[in-house]
Amino acid sequence: MSAAIWMEVLKAKGRKIWLVVAIMMAVQLLWAGWAISNKDANDLAQGWLFFLYQFPMLNCIIMPVIAAVVASRLSDVEHKGQTFKLLETIIPTKRIFAAKFIWGSIYMLGAALGQLAIMIGMGVVLHFGGPVPWGALVGYLLFTLMVSLTIYVFQQGISMLVANQMVPMTLGLIGGFIGLFSMFFPQGFQKLVLWSYYGVLMQVGMNWDPITRATDFYWKAIDWPGLGLILVFFGLIYGVGQILFVRREV
């Protein structure tokens, strides 16, 4: 397996995939800076809650795009060079799928850690109220990673099965947009949409007063059944994706 992963590392060399992740993080940083720039001292007292509410919302659109781009970059190289037939003569097909998943996951982990660094960095610099909520931030990292890896494995499956990368890219974007929009719907509906789990696993809620237009953030209980469901989705998508990839004719 380590040889298969090392091959992925070599193939990704010079393809500037980290640059894509960095650009996405830069946009997220800009967004966070812009969102927090018009906050006064009272609002900053709830800065950690504000970020833990805003970032998952933005993730609905940012992380699926990172997943789609990374999966597409890692699979496109094989389609362009028609190298799947070569690879499958020397490595078990399941292992190719697993190696690509593991290497792709590193990028998703990098993006999630980047977000955490943005949050902690801005929180410390801008003196958000209270101590750093390490428990909630670790929870955020784990939940973001879990949802992102599930979306990534979905994207990888389609990107490896369909040579035309327009199809996975379009499906990924449509999924991301539906995920963002599903936040307006009840949780029952949200749990049916893979891309909306960033919202399902949010640890912060928001009260908005339509008269005063004031917002107030509060901690909310973690949706453990939701976490269980996304784990089930992950297992299912990985299994189905792998089976379809193994069975396809090269």
Binding site: K16, V20, I23, M24, V27, L30, W31, W34, I61, V65, I66, A68, V69, S72, R73, D76, Q165, M166, M169, L173
Partner: peptide, 21 residues
């Protein structure tokens, strides 16, 4: 690459929101 320019377009759209404001 097919995907990278599309990703840049999305980032451009989001950055446009901030710059327009």
């Amino acid at each position: 690459s097919f995907a990278v320019p599309v990703g840049i377009a999305l980032m451009g759209g989001i950055a446009g929101l901030a710059l327009l404001s």
